[in-house]
Amino acid sequence: MTFNYKNVYINETATVTGPYEGKGPLSKYFDYSYEDLYFGCKTWEQAESKLVSDAVDILLGKIGLTRFDVDLFMAGDLLNQITASNYAAVNMPSSFAGVYAACATSTLELALGASIVESGFAERVVCATSSHNNAAEKQFRYPVEYGGPKRKTTTFTSTGSAACLLSAKKSSIRIESATLGSVIDSGINDVYHMGAVMAPAAATTIYNHLKDNNRTIDYYDLILTGDLGIYGKEILKEYMQIEYGINLKNYNDTGVMLYDLKEQPVYAGASGPACAPLVTYSYIMDAMKKGKYKRVLLVATGALMSPSMANEKLSIPAIAHAVSLEAI
């Protein structure tokens, strides 16, 4: 399903990260990077929630609005019951919609938020996503201090939160269209190879987006997937070629952009709901404003993984949602 928008703009963005992201190649594009992983909070979960609040505060501060000016707040994260978002929403007087699509949350929020703005039901919508490496490790893998050996295909959950403000007020970046993906079961049940789990979902969504809009891949200056990592990126390229005969040329993955893969011990690259928006709302949008890219297709990818189902040896379903961004 593809929506085309006439009048939805990303007015402002804000990015807050942890220390590893702050030492990565995109550090100068972030609004704020913390030096530690607690941010003055007592637990990882509370720390992640603080990231969301920080991102929203910075966002509203940049554009000169208060929390009372927001009509709808949308947020999502990886934790059980999207805890980080819920606890951050306590401080927001606006309506709240919690959104979950694992690491594809950011683009699902953009698609839903843009639809609400386009329809006129809400004037200003704030979309935020977050992830915290240690909170995710605790929930999905092992205790943080355990640090068991990991395989090369493992991705490293990014720590950070990214927020953006959507409205019909004109600005330099507009949301042109969005395609909601369908859930794809690729038959892979390896929780340490999420790139392989998600690549077919990304391919399907990219193909459907191009088909629905009657476009070729050359229409876009850049296709950006969420967090496939080094190996998932190669899998997607070959999959697109074999399955659809599409040659992904102007293509990159935010998972391989967030960190310095040679220097930082992040295995196959970054992941987490914050990964795609951290890169897009900082470096990519900056490049779009400078005229480097005019049309960008952001395809955030999510592995809809449940530790229980993974232990039951079921394969992991995946989803990808695409949002087409246009510089004006």
């Binding site: 090369k152 690729s186 190879h193 392989a196 190996y231 190669e234 899998i235 070959e238 074999i242």
Partner: peptide, 23 residues
């Protein structure tokens, strides 16, 4: 793409672990 065919594609792009070195 068939699941078995996709598994082959994934295996092709999956790096080998350094089993000998680790051992």
């Amino acid at each position: 793409m068939e699941k078995t065919k996709y598994k082959d594609l994934v295996n092709k792009h999956t790096p080998k672990e350094d089993v000998f070195y680790n051992a």
